[in-house]
Design a protein around this nucleic acid. Structure first.
Lengths: 293, 293
DNA sequence: TAGATTGTTAATCGATTAACAATC
DNA sequence: TAGATTGTTAATCGATTAACAATC
């Protein structure tokens, strides 16, 4: 996953493991679906299947919350929905601001999932004066000059950053100074924040790269093993070779030819990764977009 | 991280742990930035700081790839960029299709991060005939009737699903049948796929819920501990009580009053989570949006 | 050589899972 | 009661981290 918290030691908040916390929303979604179908009770086995996890894990997760099930029967759906909502803090209202109303910011503003779970989009903020006053998802875009005022007046503690990477840290700093203590970052950059501030990161490009890694391996399984060594293995000193997997050894050999450890532009071979990367401009590039209100 | 792989045992592909694979794109991004600044070498300490991880972890991660550093010197930036790109499969071209050109699908189509790392948006697909032929991010939207044909003709192995949740499984099935073996799913639903197909999930609402959990705890730290027990602890059988943390015990007490384990709608107490959830319609709700081309 | 930094070890920690006693 | 299913234990597995010998 390309998602992760920055800062704050992997706190086991009130004794609930991080991994469990991350699954609670999954359970909640499955339970909500059952609730809509008026299913009164559900077993750990059924619920686990719906949530896509193993039932032992689910029971262990629930055991951190308390003993909410009934042996021989299962879990009361409505009751569990309430308990998990409560544990996640969804029984209260969370005003959020979205900063950076490009394509992605607009998509998030329109995303029904926020409003439905206690999250309320309190304001949309952008640095582009042309955007100010335009209405996205029924909410007027405000200028970033007023960021601090907006955060304070709305009691916002959660901020969503969908700006280009170049300004993300600055926006982050301003949000934090104004009182925001949780940040959901879509900009492809590492944010640094003071202690006590949580950052979660959603990185579209990283997700795809992880898929590509596995995809490449699938292809490799069929076609023996992709790119062939350019140099016979004996070109490598035996001492190194024995510790290194075959393919890496081949790469190492290539490197040896180029002179290992030499500083500066030996240049990256053949189709190597491009430099000058538009991705790092931000999740939206530069094109801001306004959705129909 | 609300991100995770479905199916496929946590395979340690060619010996590289999943956790390491997930960090490689992070290192790659930091290295690319150094490369642009023409920095020739970097130490594990510096690179780790840039990537937001601990240096021991970084060295351990790199050790799975081979011995690419030079003791006393550090790592050659260009060489490492190439090696990681290669390991991630980014030295080849990956055609992807995006299915569901609502707000989010359009945002992704416009996202520069795809094109820049070997990912090429080969086609945009939507079920809405009104959208067919319109141009988003320079690419014409094609009708989902042609999904199979498009996947096959373009040799697509990676699919991105940004449809409403209701049709995500069907779209997934069609993609997989047509030959797609990796799926990035933005629809808030659990997809089931056959063995050999990887699914990664990005769930905006889950990320926010995890932040809310921690946010709630921060508030609780100040104000003693949020909602007070509604019932004195002695109302609970001692046997249960002794195993349960104080707060859960209070909740359990409330439950006891309502009759634990009783089936059907005791209803969820006070501000409990809403049923009928528009979020589960999909990341975009129903409003499709077309970006300026 | 002396200083710097990697690559690896080993200890620690957290997460997963099967199995089953407790109990509805 | 008999059957079902939870909650918990304990074993296992994987990930993190500090420390340091190897070595440039």
């Amino acid at each position: 996953m390309a998602t992760g918290r920055t800062h704050r030691p992997a706190t086991r908040s009130r004794g609930i493991p991080e991994a469990t916390v991350a699954r609670l929303p999954l359970y909640l979604r499955a339970l909500t679906a059952l609730s809509e179908r008026s299913v009164p009770t559900v077993s750990s086995e059924e619920l686990a299947a719906a949530a896509g996890v193993n039932s032992a894990k689910l029971r262990k997760d629930f055991s951190y919350l308390g003993s909410y099930g009934t042996r021989g029967v299962g879990y009361d759906v409505e009751y569990l929905v309430y308990q998990i909502s409560r544990e996640l803090g969804l029984t209260q209202d969370w005003p959020v601001v979205i900063v950076g109303i490009g394509n992605l910011g607009a998509a998030l503003a329109n995303y029904g999932g926020f409003a439905s779970r206690g999250f309320r989009v309190a304001a949309l903020i952008d640095a582009d004066p042309d955007l100010t006053g335009r209405v996205v998802a029924g909410i007027p875009v405000q200028h970033s000059d007023d960021l601090e005022k907006i955060v304070e007046e709305n009691g916002v503690s959660i901020g969503v950053i969908t700006t280009p990477a170049g300004v993300a840290q600055e926006v982050c700093d301003r949000l934090v100074n104004a009182g925001v203590t949780s940040i959901l970052n879509f900009a492809p950059t590492v944010l640094s924040v003071p202690d006590g501030v949580d950052v979660r990161k959603v990185d579209l490009s990283i997700e795809l790269q992880i898929l590509a890694f596995h995809e490449q391996r699938k292809a490799g399984e069929l076609a023996a093993d992709a790119p062939l060594p350019e140099t016979p293995a004996d070109a490598i000193p035996a001492t190194t070779r024995q510790q290194i997997p075959a393919e890496a050894a081949a790469q190492d050999a290539a490197r040896a030819r180029r002179g290992a450890g030499s500083a500066g532009g030996t240049g990256s071979a053949k189709g190597a990764a491009k430099t000058k990367d538009p991705a790092d401009q931000g999740p939206d590039g530069d094109v801001p977009a306004v959705m129909p209100a």
